[in-house]
Amino acid sequence: MMDLLTDPLVQRMMIVAILVGATAPVVGTYLVQRRMSLLGDGIGHVALAGVAAGWLAGSWAGLAQQDALAIPGAIVFAVVGAVVIERMRARGIAAADVIMAIMFYGGIASGVLLISAAGGSNANLMGYLFGSISTVGWTDVWTTAALSIAILVIGVGLRASLFAVTHDQEFAHSVGLPVGALNIVVAVLAAVTITASMRVVGVLLVSGVMILPVAVSQIVTRSFSRTMAVAMAIGVGICVTGVGVTLFHDLQPGALIVVLGVLLYTVVASSAGLARHRRRQRDHAIHRLDDASQTEGAPA
């Protein structure tokens, strides 16, 4: 066990897992709040096209490491994609779900086309589709750490304003908040989170790490701030557990993290449902007792 903890690869994997687990639910909270849980998928697919474009640029430039530009490409594409989605949504050009569908298919199709144009194969994309945490180097760790700090500072620091805008946009306008700019902030945060999480869970599953902890947290909390804080803890929990298990068993970490999230949701949701049912039954019993005592006490 101690050997494992001193192994630099394990250290790198754990650091990245903690960072992604803590940051993804921050942005996820705003997306759930805005009822755009699937936005992460839309942006993720666009980021995949960015990975392929970065790859193509790398091969044109004759770089030794062909995928050196993959992550920068993903960030650029994801940010541009997120801003376009947000502008289209805000101007009412198309319904949010239609915009998202266009991003899904457009992103994945252009990703596949670009990677084949770069002389790569779809296999090259697999690491980005499902994550490849076991290949993270220290550069990846520093990149993820920098992106995570930016997400935490903005996403947690501005949470009152971002809450106001995502909760009631009309009111946010009336108090003079810069609504358009704050909406763009949420979109860009989502894009950055996705590229930062891509190495751990991959673009296909990244939304799971953003949304599932929030879904679980919502069942047990009432306040927005608490929902976000508990979701961050759950995110760290499932990411560290998922990566930890894969040290001992040959499993795909990204998929395991998401399955852990779904299991946790199922357990918490059904326990909460059971507790509600019990409470109702107990209330009914008390009412019956009350009724009985009133009938006895009433004059004949």
């Binding site: 009822r35 009309e170 929030v214 909390t221 929902t227």
Partner: peptide, 13 residues
Amino acid sequence: SAGGGVTATAREV
């Protein structure tokens, strides 16, 4: 017009 997918307390609102 108000409300989102995440619960919020009266004080937060």
